[in-house]
């Protein structure tokens, strides 16, 4: 399971970085989103992977680490707010600058 998990994270992070480097607003936002998904899963994995382990102490002999789950929740909320902000900013940029390049102007040919 660890290998599959790691490869998935790797692919997501790599796609995120690739999209970020496209330097167009929409791919950049998608890239940031993918990257934050990868990061959230990574935080989750740092509490050790396991199946059938409840996050509550006393229900079974083994229990999952609840702290990373709390961290992931916080990270998701913050990431969500930030993505919303970038999207609004991107729309403003598109309206005011008439281009979707992140530099605010098309690259000179």
């Amino acid at each position: 399971m660890e290998a599959v998990f790691a490869i998935t994270l790797g692919i997501m992070a790599a796609s995120g970085v690739y999209l970020l480097l496209r330097a167009r607003i929409f791919p950049v936002v998608m890239g940031l989103t993918l990257l934050s998904y990868a990061v959230n899963l990574f935080i989750f994995a740092m509490g050790r992977l396991g199946t059938g382990v409840p996050a509550v102490i006393g229900k079974s002999t083994e229990y999952g680490d609840p702290l990373p789950q709390a961290l992931v929740l916080t990270a998701i909320v913050i990431g969500f707010a930030m993505t919303a902000f970038v999207l609004v900013l991107a729309l403003r940029g598109l309206g005011e600058l008439r281009t979707d390049h992140v530099d605010g102007q098309e690259r000179r040919k």
Partner: peptide, 20 residues
Amino acid sequence: VSAGMHYVVLNLLGSSFFLI
């Protein structure tokens, strides 16, 4: 808006690194 875009995107990327 154009200066803010760089600032926001770079800092979002920085936040991801921070979390990792």
